[in-house]
């Protein structure tokens, strides 16, 4: 049976998990091609106008698969962290897809994965239900699950060490290591899809910086700093962004010279979380330069480059000012 995984939204987080799980269950996995102009165009025509850009892109990927597979893989990822949620649009994603593409229940895998109330055990129950679509052999499902979890752990470890998802998934060339770094924040689907972010990572790299993303920060550390927020948000990815930002604001890494936050214009969580981070940054002494980049179908590449270059100037300027300030040779 051919199962199609659209390359969008949580894809960059769970691709290896999903692929392994499905293949172990005997499915043939087909992934939509990397995002392209064509896919974005299609997404724009299928999605309602006001929906956020990442969901539109996702719909473009669905279209690229829908006639080529027996089953579309759009699990309902309600929560993958105990006590937290994903954004309402991700909660409703299978329904959006189902209604827009007129899919029958037999054409879409939409089992609910939900760790919010009863933790990972509950999420696993969802995966087992999902597995039962392929086999009634519970042991086989359990084994597939185990293998998938193992592969997922390895994937996450590689991300921690600085490898980028696109390198692991598509064999994209990795970046040149640089001495200085920029902390790059944002949802995984904005950070890791180089078409929709207009190669922002490569661009930052060419301007002379390596990047750090939330994927590269140990989870314990993120969660430790998140505890310092009076009330964290409800959304796991947003919380990882908050925790990462706070950790670099409170415990400075001298190599990290600035914060770039990719947000999408119509994104609900970003609108609030971005504001919080912006205000935190302002309150810090000798704070890091902070740039918020809005990414959507209207973002122009030229404008993005200009803003990045101006940002680099700002990081350099701040650095030289701080240096002269602290230099033992400076006049006191």
């Amino acid at each position: 049976m051919k199962v199609g995984i659209p390359r969008g939204l949580l894809f960059y987080r769970f691709y290896f998990f999903w692929k392994t799980f499905l293949e172990e269950l005997g499915a043939e996995v087909i992934t939509s091609p990397p995002t392209s102009r064509y896919i974005v165009q299609k997404g724009l025509t299928y999605g309602i106008e006001e929906i956020c850009f990442p969901v539109k892109v996702f719909l473009g990927h669905v279209l690229a698969l829908v006639d080529r597979v027996d089953l579309l893989f759009v699990p309902r990822m309600v929560s993958f962290y105990p006590g937290e949620y994903n954004c309402p649009k991700i909660l409703g994603l299978p329904d959006i897809v189902r209604n827009l593409f007129h899919l029958s229940p037999e054409q879409i895998i939409d089992e609910e994965i939900n760790a919010r109330n009863r933790g990972m055990r509950e999420a696993e129950m969802g995966l087992i239900r999902l597995g039962e679509r392929f086999t009634s052999n519970r042991r086989k499902i359990a084994q597939a699950l185990q293998k998938a979890e193992k592969v997922h752990r390895e994937y996450r470890q590689q991300l921690q060490s600085g490898v980028l998802p696109e390198t692991l998934i598509d064999g994209k060339q990795s970046l040149l290591p640089k001495e200085e770094k920029v902390l790059l924040l944002g949802h995984t689907y904005l950070l890791n899809d180089s078409y929709i972010n207009m190669n922002v990572i490569e661009k930052i790299n060419q301007l002379g910086y390596s990047i750090v993303t939330p994927d590269m920060v140990p989870e314990d550390r993120i969660r430790l700093f998140l505890k310092k927020v009076p009330k964290p948000s409800f959304w796991t990815i947003s919380n990882e962004i908050l925790g990462t930002a706070l950790s670099y604001l409170k415990e400075r890494d001298p190599k990290v010279k600035g914060l770039v936050h990719l947000v999408s214009f119509e994104c609900g969580p970003d609108s609030l979380v971005g504001e919080l981070i912006g205000r935190w940054v302002k309150k810090e002494e000798q704070s890091l330069p902070y740039l918020r980049l809005e990414i959507d179908e209207h973002t122009g590449e030229a404008g993005l480059v200009t803003r990045l270059e101006a940002f680099v100037d700002m990081m350099r300027w701040r650095d030289s000012n701080l240096e002269s300030h602290f230099s033992p040779f400076a006049a006191s």
């Binding site: 999605g47 309602i48 006001e50 929906i51 954004c87 309402p88 649009k89 909660l91 409703g92 329904d95 959006i96 209604n99 827009l100 007129h102 119509e266 609900g268 609108s271």
Partner: peptide
């Protein structure tokens, strides 16, 4: 409200 997340989900299925 413009950009309201649950209502955008609702709107996406209301067409049908």
């Amino acid at each position: 409200p413009f950009t309201c997340m649950p209502e955008i989900v609702a709107k996406s299925v209301l067409t049908q």
